[in-house]
Simulated scan of single mutants.
Amino acid sequence: MSILLFNPDSDPALASQLARLLDAQAGVLEQRRFPDGESYLRVHTECKGRRCVILCNLFHPDERLLRLLFLADTLREMGASEVGLVTPYLAYMRQDKRFKPGECVSSRPFARLLSEAFDYLVTVDPHLHRYHSLDEIYTIPSRVVQAAPLIAHWIGQHIRDPLLIGPDSESEQWVSHVAGLAGVPFQILQKERRGDYDVSISLPDLEQGQQCTPVLVDDIISSGRTMLETLSHLQSAGLPRATIIGVHGIFAGDAYTRLTQIADVVTTACIPHLSNQIDIAPPIAEAVRELMQQRDTD
């Protein structure tokens, strides 16, 4: 019996790709909101004894989480043999430490909620800064799809003489990995953040890269302030127009508009956006198959 793939939120392109790659049937949902704002959800596809996969991109988690949990619970009540979650952007990973007394380390309660609702988890390059792996906070099997090979391939196909630049120490793991796979040089700059919109970046050493095309790589592009500050330095140094590559393009506020005025912007298809140029469906489908095979042998 084929896999059932449910897509409770609007990511039809990725859902269609995954359904084809997994030979899955698209599950039919009825969803709406009551006048008081509460959610109504109904599953129209028989799922008793079937493997169910939910594709739910959690880049706006507070808007999606309750409906996602309701769907997972309903599928179990209807007799699904397993319920897995595919979320290319895994939210609430950035708050991984209590910086001030009383702060919620939100990555941990969020992980408990998802671990209790699902049998396994597939995501793309979660923000693992102080955690070494998802296993530190998630209690279900997980697979992390790495975007670095996909980005390196894209760079090799589209950028001539690239110099990869990471705007801060947290980006080093992404930039060094991509640079190694692509066989190109890279530099990591130093960032000082004084607030959400107040960021300063060190000047890069660009002697080796004067004839190169600067390529800024980071896992998350949100406010864009870090990238904008870095681009300002690159412009002052007289470098060619840069390319920005993000694994997760959140683009809060006018970030995308401001960035595209001075650079070319490319993202993976983790979060649906017009900047998507790097396909993620094949490795995600492979990760789902691996987890299903693991469950079969356990």
Score class of each variant (00 low, 15 high):
E207Q: 09
S200E: 15
T226I: 14
L216D: 09
Q187H: 10
S223P: 07
E207Y: 02
G209Y: 00
D198I: 04
I221D: 06
Y197W: 01
F186L: 05
I201V: 11
V184I: 02
P204Q: 03
D219N: 13
S222C: 12
S202W: 08
F186M: 06
L216V: 15
P214N: 07
G195T: 10
L203Q: 13
D218G: 04
S202Y: 05
V217Y: 06
I221E: 10
G195F: 01
D196N: 14
L189N: 03
A179L: 05
F186T: 06
I188H: 00
V184T: 09
Q211V: 07
R225I: 12
A182Y: 02
L216E: 11
R225V: 14
L203K: 13
Q187P: 02
G180T: 15
I221P: 02
D219H: 06
Y197N: 14
D196M: 10
I220H: 03
V199Q: 13
P204I: 02
K191P: 15
G180E: 14
R194F: 10
I221V: 15
Q208Y: 02
P185M: 08
Q190A: 09
T226D: 15
I201L: 01
L189E: 02
L206E: 11
D196Q: 14
Q190T: 14
I220D: 07
S223K: 08
T226G: 15
V217D: 08
C212R: 15
G183K: 00
R193E: 09
D196Y: 05
D198W: 00
Q208L: 08
V199L: 11
L189S: 03
G209S: 03
V199R: 11
G180L: 11
F186G: 02
Y197K: 10
A182N: 04
C212L: 06
G180Q: 14
L206F: 08
L206C: 13
G180F: 11
S223Y: 07
D218R: 04
D218P: 05
L216N: 10
S202E: 09
P214D: 08
T226P: 13
